[in-house]
């Protein structure tokens, strides 16, 4: 497709450590079109952050090593371009915000200065212009008294305000893509909702495409156009939000959905967490990586590595039986936690 903004194709990032090779990202593909939102979902340690950082070339190599794949930004390879070119893209065309707003801002510099920095670097603004713009950006993300708050240091901001400041910094150069790596995980629930709302509102205004990384399917349900489900460093399901929510076709995705709490408190609902632990990435099980935890496991799952296959309409699944009409999700009948 010509309009593709970002295309990731079979990306592999392995860490060569003393204990062995950690296959943190082992075959991830997706495309992102301008203005769209992609949700990247998976348990802790499934390689979501490493995927994003690899695209931005922010993983130190060594110990990291790109074992294959491609990242195309506007048709150009991010993985082979010169360091200076990547730097021109970082914070300018593709910006990032991180999980922990408490540690992601430099404690010894003023908020305004930190927001102004990308503008000075990429837009050639003077310090004064950049600072004035930083104040406007703080206003835009809903910080009251922005002019005076810009002179504050991070420790004078609450967690929610810091994440707003991070968003202001990320959007300062009007990027094409905003990568948000679990931007609300460290915040309490009411603030989470506010931050998500803010991001949606800003997206509407600026047309920025968003990659929303989260371990919570619920977070992306309302905002994503497409969803990528990751397990053990691999893409296991990919499709439009409707496809993934209404016709989920990987047992891991089913498990993620069953572990979503329903907000209907009148009925007794069951919460069915996925049994077991995600595999060590040093030693991924043979065959399908999910097979030791899969309630639907069959003999072939232990020997055959499933490929991501198209089920039609661009809905991809890496389950050997996804296309099998008899292979169905059974009602959640786990021992489960009843509440």
């Amino acid at each position: 497709m010509a309009g593709e903004l970002l295309k990731v194709d079979d990306l592999k990032m392995h860490f060569h450590t003393r204990d062995g090779v950690v296959k943190a990202v082992d075959g991830v593909s997706y495309t992102l079109n301008p203005g769209e939102t992609l949700g990247v979902v998976g348990e802790s340690g499934s390689g979501k952050s490493v995927t994003a950082l690899t695209m931005m070339r922010l993983i130190p190599m060594p110990p990291g090593k790109i074992e294959g794949g491609e990242v195309l930004f506007k048709g150009e390879s991010m993985l082979t371009m010169k360091e200076e070119q990547v730097r021109d893209i970082r914070g300018n065309r593709i910006a990032m915000i991180f999980q922990d707003p408490m540690t992601s801002l430099n404690p010894v510099y003023r908020i305004g200065h930190q927001i102004a920095e990308p503008l000075i670097t990429h837009k050639g603004m003077s310090k004064k212009e950049a600072h004035a713009r930083a104040v406007e950006l703080l206003e835009m993300v809903g910080i009251p008294n922005a002019a005076s708050r810009a002179r504050d240091y991070p420790h004078q901001f609450s967690g929610g305000m810091r994440q707003r400041a991070m968003i202001a910094m990320a959007l300062s150069c009007d990027p094409d893509v905003l990568i948000a790596d679990e931007p609300t995980t460290a915040l309490d629930v009411t603030i989470q909702a506010q931050i998500l709302e803010l991001m949606q509102a800003l997206q509407k205004r600026t047309g920025t495409a968003i990659i929303m990384i989260t371990h919570d399917l619920g977070v992306v349900a309302d905002i994503a156009n497409n969803i990528l489900v990751m397990y053990a460093g691999r893409a296991v399901e990919y499709g439009s939000t409707d496809q993934v929510f209404y016709e989920p076709s990987h047992p891991y995705t089913w498990g993620l959905m069953d572990s979503l709490p329903t907000h209907d408190l009148t009925e007794k609902s069951t919460l069915c967490p996925i049994e077991g632990q995600p595999p060590s990435l040093l030693n991924v099980p043979s065959g399908c990586p999910f097979n030791p935890r899969c309630p639907y496991v069959k003999e072939e799952c232990r020997t055959t590595v499933p490929e991501l296959r198209d089920l039609g309409d661009g809905h991809l699944s890496a389950c050997l039986f996804a296309a099998d009409p008899d292979f169905k999700r059974s009602a959640a009948d786990c021992a489960g936690v009843t509440r």
Binding site: M56, L58, D88, I89, R90, M96, T103, S104, L105, E117
Partner: peptide
């Protein structure tokens, strides 16, 4: 530290 990663993500040299 995380803020150093942030600084690189801004595109600083």
């Amino acid at each position: 530290q995380d803020y150093v990663r942030t600084a690189y993500a801004k595109g600083l040299s």
